[in-house]
Design a protein around this nucleic acid. Sequence first.
RNA 1: UCCUCGGUAGCUCAGCGGUAGAGCAGUGGACUGUUAAUCCAUUGGUCAUAGGUUCAAAUCCUAUCCGGGGAGCCA
Length: 512
Amino acid sequence: MDSTSIPAVTISAIGQHNDSEIQLNGWVQNKRENKGLAFIILRDGTGFCQCVASEQELGEDEFKKTKDLTLESSVRISGKVKKDERQIGGYELQVTGIEVIQIAQDYPISKKAHGVDFLLDKRHLWLRSKRQWAIMRVRNQVIYSIHNFFQSRGYVQMDAPIFTGNACEGTTNLFETDFFDQPAYLSQSGQLYGEAMAMAMGKIYTFGPTFRAEKSKTRRHLSEFWMIEPEMAFYNLEMTMDVIEDFLQSVIGDVLQNCSFELEVLERDVTKLKAALNPFVRLTYKDAVAILKGEKEVNGKRSIDLLTEDLNKAKDRLSELNNEIEETEAALKKGGIKKGKVVRMEQSLQNWRAEKAELEEAIRNIPVWIQSAENFVDGNDFGGSDETVITRMFDTPVMVFNWPKIIKAFYMKEVDEDPTLVKGVDVLAPEGYGEIVGGGERETDIDVLIDSIKKHDLPMSEFEWYLDLRRYGSVPHAGFGLGLERLITWICKIHHLREAIPFPRLMGRLLP
RNA sequence: UCCUCGGUAGCUCAGCGGUAGAGCAGUGGACUGUUAAUCCAUUGGUCAUAGGUUCAAAUCCUAUCCGGGGAGCCA
């Protein structure tokens, strides 16, 4: 085959070459065979395309090559583009020639189900699979939209250092390193540096990696993740909440507009994302507590009633499932069923058992959540379940502001009417995803700040440069931090935060 | 650190005192429009490790190791 005379194109651009002969470079994502006919699903990173090879068209020798193709073998395939609405991407390739580059032997990720742990061991290969491809494309869109949002509004991107000397919120959460015989820590926030940069440029944002050393093993934790931290001079809390809302809606809008195929691959219910384009709910901490404890209704419902409803639904579904499982097990044991049907029944059983485990967990959890909500002590921080309960009441993200001073960071500005409160804001994502943004207005008064640093038992010497920002032209300013992976996890509605980053780092995982 | 669930074929799991199982993957075969193709056949096991109870242990008990997700903490 003369590979030079036929133009090589990407699958994403295949629509521009309908009815003409082209060449695709890629990997075999899947293959189905009939006598004299082979269907190769090719992926090239830009998309997926079914290539149809016919023995009649190709001749015996060229067609034989399709027989050897295994999953993830690399190939150049030339052929004629044919529009076909039924196919993935809307086109298929009628193969005229195949050049095998390499035959992959025993690709470890098969076409059927795998556990997350196994897949994470194979993360370098897992990234090739369709779901991961879709998530990473959404991630790319989110990153692009973030830059676009801030750049088009006059923000300057400036980055904070990764090595820091100040253990600004205690050393237990920080990774310690040896920095020329001095202890240094990997940054857990660029916030303080962001304030310095905002005093130089007006509006800035940082975009970089952040490190947390907590020994946390949950679906919402990473030891290394990416954070975006805008900081604006002459902004107050209200203006910041407006920016957050505008910002998140802009990113979500871009994803909805540009990633419809990716969201389809992920089977994402986009009505939930579209709901977030409506104005966000804004609650004071006090109101949020009242809603949590069931003292305040939302749309005529109390949180505890809604949870009880959820609990009963889960119980009903569980007994339904148990019946289905029992009946199917009995039928299988009895035998005399065709093989194809047996396979389907086995698969249903596996799905049901997984759903059952989830329901049982919910049934165990919800009473605890109700208890925790009822007994919530005003003035405490919200736990994971409390966040879930609050967001359960609304369709849009929820912004909670005016928090008790004692549970928030030292740099937050006090509320004028009530100095026990500070002008912080947390954004809670819907569908149980919890906190994605934390921010607020910063303290401008140097005496209040010095007092706060002392009360938090922080080493004053480390903060002299920070206090300079208040000594020389202190102005009202505010900002926030967005956890990139948490936002992506919610947008894609994925189970594990670790699927939202190419190579996750967490306790017990440094490879690959 | 605490709570909780788990470790059985390459993968996903069932079996819970009495001969080690299923599906997928792999391999061989059938089939000219498949969509996780289907159908037939077939390879594949120190049941995490070490002790103990028992006529008999993957199954019960004890210890150890490893992992999951939840609490704490957090984006």
